[in-house]
Design a protein around this nucleic acid. Structure first.
Length: 286
DNA sequence: ATGAATACCTGAGAGC
DNA sequence: TGCTCTCAGGTATTCA
């Protein structure tokens, strides 16, 4: 499901509702959601009891809750995968269908990790309050104040690959997934197969600007929801699906030129382009 | 270095 | 109705 704007919406919800709360108990209903917590579910439960949440942070599509017990700077590291949700609920509200892990809080509410497909998960990150060591390979994202567009342009041009493949590589720039990659490429009039080595500097600058813009706009709309799989911590959908120009628009007219948007299979998923605004490179060079 | 394939999962919808 | 097939916002690992 979620890309950077959706994860940031969730992070803000957690900042508002769980920072300052203490975890009183943990229920693990689905151990596979703790696959990445190598010491296992019992350890996860034992180590969270009585810990206080002091911050909600994010890099790219990862988010984490910094914990304070005056001894460790640990964190609960979370990735939502394709279908993960973090929901804040009153304790007496009925359990949702795909509830996997419940954190009971000291204000009578619960933080519930729900995940239909179990691609996401939670783990305790030792000493991970500032930046979990598990995710140091994840590059800064375009909404990070320390994101370096010039450095990104340099590393992009050192690559020899398709530009969409590079956008989706979380070690080059993080937070971009299939939706916002297609939207930013459409805004930049770039075909996904354009070779990174041969992009003009102004094309890269345009691309970085559009990636930043589209994710900022999506964030302001609460993210993109196609169905009930992406919601904020209060269970509400985002509205950016109404503003999509290319993604999911197969057969509909390009908002710029009216040519029907086409869908191609690419990287075991779909890519949406305007065949007129985003011509396919002919020889793989440009 | 690059990228293809695979693994990890559930469920909705289409077509028969 | 049920069966099979395809598709879906992602990441990590292994192998060519």
């Amino acid at each position: 499901m979620p890309e950077l704007p959706e994860v940031e919406v969730v992070r803000r919800g957690l900042e508002d509702h769980v920072v300052g709360r203490t975890i009183t108990a943990v229920d693990v209903l689905e151990p596979r959601s703790l696959r990445r917590h190598l010491p296992g579910p019992a350890d996860f439960v034992a180590r969270l009891r009585a810990r206080t949440i002091v911050a909600a942070r994010r890099r790219g599509k990862y988010l984490w809750l910094a914990l304070d017990d005056d001894v460790h700077g640990d964190a609960v590291l979370c990735h939502l995968g394709m279908s993960g949700q973090m929901l804040i609920s009153d304790a007496d509200a009925p359990d949702p269908r795909h509830l996997r892990v419940r954190l009971r809080l000291d204000d009578g509410r619960e933080l519930r990790f729900c995940d239909q497909r179990i691609f996401g998960g939670l783990a305790i990150s030792e000493d991970g309050a500032v930046l979990p060591p598990e995710i140091t390979h994840i590059a800064r994202d375009p909404l990070d104040v320390a994101f370096d567009p010039g450095g990104f342009a340099t590393s992009l041009r050192r690559r020899q690959t398709g530009v969409k493949r590079a956008l989706l590589d979380q070690t080059l720039v993080s937070g971009v997934g299939n939706i916002y990659a297609d939207e930013a490429l459409w805004r930049s009039r770039l075909h996904y197969a354009r070779n990174t080595r041969h992009l003009r500097l102004r094309e890269i600058e345009s691309l970085v600007g559009h990636v930043t813009d589209v994710m900022t706009e999506a964030l302001a709309q609460g993210g993109t929801s196609f169905d009930a799989l992406y919601v904020n911590v209060n269970g509400q959908s985002g509205y950016f699906d109404r503003s999509l120009s290319a993604y999911g628009q197969e057969g509909r007219p390009c908002p710029r030129c009216g040519t029907p948007i086409r869908r191609d299979a690419f990287m075991n998923r779909s890519s949406f382009t305007c065949p007129r605004c985003q011509p396919r490179p002919r020889n793989g060079r440009w």
